[in-house]
Write a protein that binds this DNA or RNA. Structure first.
Length: 755
DNA sequence: GGCCAGTTTCTTTTT
DNA sequence: GAAACTGGCC
């Protein structure tokens, strides 16, 4: 029965078998963290704990599913009854069971970020505030932060620190927006992502009908994965469940402070650092042996992360004695970077017999995927973009979903906003404006506000018709399943008619998207996967479906036998591993992001993100950067990333490429320790204003010997031109001290020929 | 009220 | 470069 224990090393085994009382597992990358978690759960079950008494909070749905699978493999079908999922998905399930206790309908809507932003925008404009002073994204961020720290709008308004910050920024009305936002969400029977947590906290805190006791009793063992990514609120809920008088404190948290990459979302490392204070009888286990990566990769990761200021002390080590050095790719343009990466992928596949799915390309921003997609297609390499959630972002998909949302919760204002006039039914901006004004000022839902007799007779009629339509869907929702209802709505709402009119390629693809959405719903209602295992709940209900879709984060439809090269953001790569990993775009202002350059703590987070990215690699790690990049509509020039300097040259196959070209005259190398100030004119990412007489000449005419002028580098002489047609590269001797000799790709460079 | 075209703005990561 | 916004016109 205990043979699974033989598959563990000493520390791992202790982390698995010490099941009583608080346990913290600090797990470096590749140290068998998932294995420890799953075996721990399996061990609990084997020791007589009922699966349904185990609550396992993971970061992604995918991790949860994987965990369930693995548990089932060890303990059999019972593993399915473990409550494993993300904070958001499990708590939203609890909230649906208990919704009435906190004044919400069980069919509450979940607002995604777009919904929240639209609502905030609406509130701001209705309050007559200057929207340049209150960018919706920033406002949402502030509200989200407040909620994550359990600060109500009232507390916000009374918090001297927050108020004075807002005041000094010229945003004195922030807490009023917060207040209106909260009220309108409430009236709409809607929760945003943070509310799913906040309301769970409230539910437990208010403890009506002993509800918290019920869940404490039920979840005897709580496990939290990726604990370094939890925020104050999430930790507060975990404490509600495990830290109370008489609790046996059976909590196990697993995490790695070095992999904390969600501070921007309110995650706080102090949770992990303070854990010992909250649970004094804590046992700590450190998993430091890396089973994933070869030595150069492990050493590079250690040396990069050692540049961060505070951290829990640990050193990752590996038993592997040999492995490949890190390859470095230096390109002149983003297109060339992608082309060379694609070329290397072809080569690696041949030489090492890698399947496509053994390889991943990781980047800092999703926008970088384009160049790689293009080149992979050109090289006939199947690929897949992971994350991005593009399918559920499509207009037609969101539209149909909005109707579904309304059919179980007609108060959902943001769903109304979406489809009140789609397809066209003559209810335009003016009318919607009126409705929302009433909704805001009288604290009603839009649905209720429509009943006010303030519209002209034509509009009143149109609104009546619209309400009748939605009411008919509400009625159908009582009896139909999610699939039949979606199909019914598609036909009767007029969406079908509208989309069928359009016979362009785009129109066709929209209809295809609807078809796949419907297929997805069908799959959902036919699936027999256990979700809640709660006898009171209809596991295949419309609201269950909507909830599951609202909280989809990773590509859940990942088919195991698909063989694709994976493209994803470094963030999305956390928890995954690949034989060969390409981390691309390693340039200052990109990775690390320009957003981080003024704040040491954000820079540390960028470094942790880089650490996460490179530790995904098992056998091959390739890092690439480009001298120039087409970004936000214009050409940018950036220095190679500082992170490249933080890796000992020994670990590179071709360390000479790390040496910076004197592009900006700066040298940040660790050896010299010199950090010269940049001259404003040569700041990366900026262009000098064009002299009035500057004219771009036809690049094809550029030849050796000519005098040319470059917007950023000044005047110089062309020494040589090499390369053919598409990729001609000129070597130019510029006169400015900061920019001596440079190689420039002619198809991108904007040069003026002077003579 | 609806539509198109021109203009402006803002560029990260995601539950 | 894309999305969001604006203004002008039917």
């Amino acid at each position: 029965m205990n043979d699974y224990l033989d598959q563990l090393n000493d520390v791992q085994r202790q982390a698995v078998t010490n099941v009583d009382g608080p346990v913290m597992v600090i797990a470096g990358p590749g140290s068998g963290k998932t294995r420890v978690l799953t075996f721990r759960i399996a061990h609990l079950i084997n020791s007589g704990v009922e699966p349904r008494q185990v609550l396992s909070l993971t970061f992604t749905n995918k991790a949860a599913r994987e965990m369930k699978d693995r548990i089932s493999r060890v303990v059999g079908k019972g593993g399915n009854y473990v409550w494993a999922g993300t904070f958001h998905s499990l708590f939203s399930r609890i909230l649906r069971i208990e919704a009435e206790k906190i004044g919400y309908p069980a069919t509450f809507s979940i607002y995604d970020t777009d919904d929240s932003k639209a609502l905030i925008k609406d509130i701001i404009s209705r309050m007559g505030l200057d929207k340049s002073k209150y960018p919706p994204g920033l406002v949402l961020n502030r509200i989200s932060n407040a909620k994550s720290n359990l600060i109500t709008w009232k507390a916000y308004g009374g918090n001297a620190e927050l108020v004075s910050r807002d005041q000094s920024e010229g945003r004195p009305d922030m807490y009023k927006i917060y207040q209106k936002y909260v009220i309108r969400c409430q009236k709409s029977g809607a929760m945003d992502f943070d509310d799913l947590l906040l309301n769970t906290f409230r539910l437990f805190y208010e403890n009506k009908d002993n509800v918290v006791a019920k869940y404490r009793e039920r979840f005897k063992y709580v496990l939290v994965d990726e604990f370094q990514d939890t925020n104050f609120l999430q930790y507060a809920i975990v404490k509600q469940l495990t830290r109370y008088k008489g609790s046996s404190q059976n909590i196990c948290i697993v995490g790695d402070d070095a992999q904390s990459i969600y501070a921007f979302r309110g995650a706080t490392i102090s949770n992990i650092l303070d854990f010992k204070k909250d649970y004094p009888s804590l046992k700590v286990f450190k998993l430091e042996q890396n089973y994933r990566s070869t030595p150069h990769i492990v050493a590079a990761a250690n040396s990069v992360i050692s540049n961060n200021r505070s951290q829990i002390k640990k050193e990752i080590w590996t038993e592997y004695s040999s492995g490949n050095k890190i390859a470095l790719v230096k390109a002149l343009s983003d297109a060339e970077e992608a082309r060379r990466v694609a070329g290397l992928i072809v080569e690696q596949k041949n030489r090492h017999h890698y399947a496509n799915k053994d390889i991943a390309i990781l980047y800092r921003t999703n926008a970088q995927s384009r160049a790689f997609e293009e080149q992979l297609r050109r090289h006939d390499i199947p690929y897949r973009i992971y994350g991005g959630m593009s399918f559920y972002q499509r207009k037609e998909v969101k539209d149909l979903m909005a109707y579904l949302r309304l059919s179980i919760n007609p108060a959902d204002d943001e769903a109304i906003r979406r489809i009140i006039n789609y397809p066209r039914r003559g209810i335009g901006k003016t009318t919607l404006d009126k409705i929302m004004t009433i909704a805001t000022s009288e604290e009603l839902s839009a649905w209720e506000a429509m009943d006010r007799e303030i519209f002209n007779s034509r509009t009143t009629n149109l609104l009546k018709k619209f309400k009748g339509l939605i009411a008919s869907f509400v009625e159908k929702a009582q009896t139909m399943n999610a699939y039949d209802l979606a199909l019914h709505i598609y036909k009767k709402s007029g969406m079908d008619a509208d989309l069928s009119k359009d016979n362009s390629i785009e129109g066709l693809s929209r209809r295809e998207n609807i078809t796949s959405l419907l297929d997805g719903i069908k799959e959902f209602i036919d699936s027999d996967e256990l979700l809640t295992n709660d006898p009171d709940m209809d596991e295949r209900s419309i609201s269950e479906y909507l909830q599951s879709v609202a909280l989809i984060t990773d590509f859940d439809s990942e088919d195991g036998d698909d063989d694709h090269v994976l493209l994803m953001s470094a963030h999305a790569s956390k928890g995954l591993e690949f034989k060969s990993v390409f981390v691309v775009g390693l340039e200052e202002n990109l990775f690390p992001s320009f957003m981080a350059k003024d704040s040491p703590s954000s820079m540390d987070e960028e470094r942790r993100l880089f650490y996460v990215a490179i530790t995904r690699a098992m056998e091959h790690l390739t890092l690439s950067y480009s001298n120039s990049r087409y970004q936000y509509g214009s050409m940018r020039f950036n220095d190679p990333s500082r992170f490249l300097d933080e890796i000992e040259p020994d670990h590179f196959q071709n360390p000479e490429l790390v040496v910076k070209e004197p592009v900006t005259g700066s040298d940040r190398s660790k050896v010299s320790g010199v950090f010269p100030k940049r001259k404003p004119a040569s700041k990366p990412g900026t262009t000098r204003p064009a002299p009035a007489d500057f004219k771009v000449s036809d690049p094809a005419r550029v030849a050796a010997g000519m005098r040319v002028r470059h917007l950023r580098f000044g005047e110089g002489e062309v020494l040589a031109v090499e390369g053919g047609a598409e990729n001609r590269i000129a070597t130019i001797q510029f006169e400015e001290v900061d920019n001596p000799k440079k190689k420039i790709m002619l198809k991108y460079a904007r040069l003026q020929i002077l003579d």
